[in-house]
């Protein structure tokens, strides 16, 4: 117990001293996950909106598929991206394996279905409310999409944060495609796994504290945004 307390104090001093190795790992983690979520949103939000307002054969099956992909196991995603990027794989020529780009690709695959599915839910429920009014105002189905996305912006930001929460906390995919190379592809989660196995608990704990702080901050942001989007005084829904 005393050892643990000592490790914890060392971890805190690492954080407070602004240890450069620690900061590099944190910055790389944020960079990889934010870029993955950014690109995931670029693809996931239009895809979710199309699933919500589009009417085409196979739409229901696609919705089921996207929902199912929300629960993709990270290690399987890591394995698939590894096979694609490995020297003998179809994208091997790009030589991306064991680079931060490979990690971004893996996390992109993980978060895009989450963002698409949450966007679909948001836009679909808003569309059910708005559809007659927007048609009455002369908007076509296609012209309605930007209105629905803008009016669902708070819920869509929540989808973005949910994707970020998933990306920043996962370890399975990035450790396979990134290789956990020191100063190159080592992120918070992979460092925690490695340093714990080596017995270097202070660095692992310091990163754990930061990771938990980020998770709490993301959840607090989601909660605040959800409260902002919730019905307010005099809400019309009871009419």
């Amino acid at each position: 117990m005393q050892d643990f307390a000592q490790e914890f104090m060392t971890a805190l001093s690492l954080i407070l001293s602004g240890d450069s190795e620690l900061l590099n790992i944190v910055f790389l983690s944020l960079k990889v996950s934010l870029l993955a979520v950014f690109f995931g949103a670029l693809v996931g939000m239009p895809l979710g909106a199309a699933l919500a307002v589009g009417r085409f054969p196979g739409r229901r099956a696609l919705i089921v598929l996207v929902n199912a992909l929300m629960g993709l196991p990270p290690v399987v995603v890591g394995l698939c991206v590894y096979l694609m990027l490995s020297r003998s794989g179809p994208l091997g020529v790009l030589q991306l394996l064991y680079t931060p780009t490979a990690m971004i690709i893996a996390q992109f695959v993980l978060v895009t279905p989450i963002i698409a599915a949450l966007t679909r839910q948001t836009v679909e429920s808003l569309d059910a409310e708005y559809t007659e009014q927007l048609r009455s105002l002369g908007l076509s189905r296609l012209a309605s999409v930007p209105v629905l996305l803008w009016d669902g912006r708070i819920a869509l930001l929540t989808a973005f944060l949910a994707g970020f929460g998933r990306a920043i906390a996962e370890v399975g995919a990035v450790i396979i495609v990134g290789g956990n190379i020191n100063h190159v592809t080592r992120v918070m989660t992979t460092t925690i796994a490695l340093e714990t196995s080596k017995g270097n608990l202070s660095l692992a704990l310091a990163l754990g504290v930061i990771l938990i702080a980020i998770a709490i901050a993301v959840n607090a942001a989601v909660s605040l945004l959800a409260r902002g989007a919730a019905p307010q005084r005099g809400e019309l829904s009871h009419a």
């Binding site: 708005y130 009014q133 009455s136 209105v147 009016d151 669902g152 989007a229 019309l236």
Partner: peptide
């Protein structure tokens, strides 16, 4: 133009 039984107001 049309106004519905339950007003549909944009979230703005």
């Amino acid at each position: 133009a049309m106004v519905f039984q339950r007003p549909v107001l944009l979230r703005r």
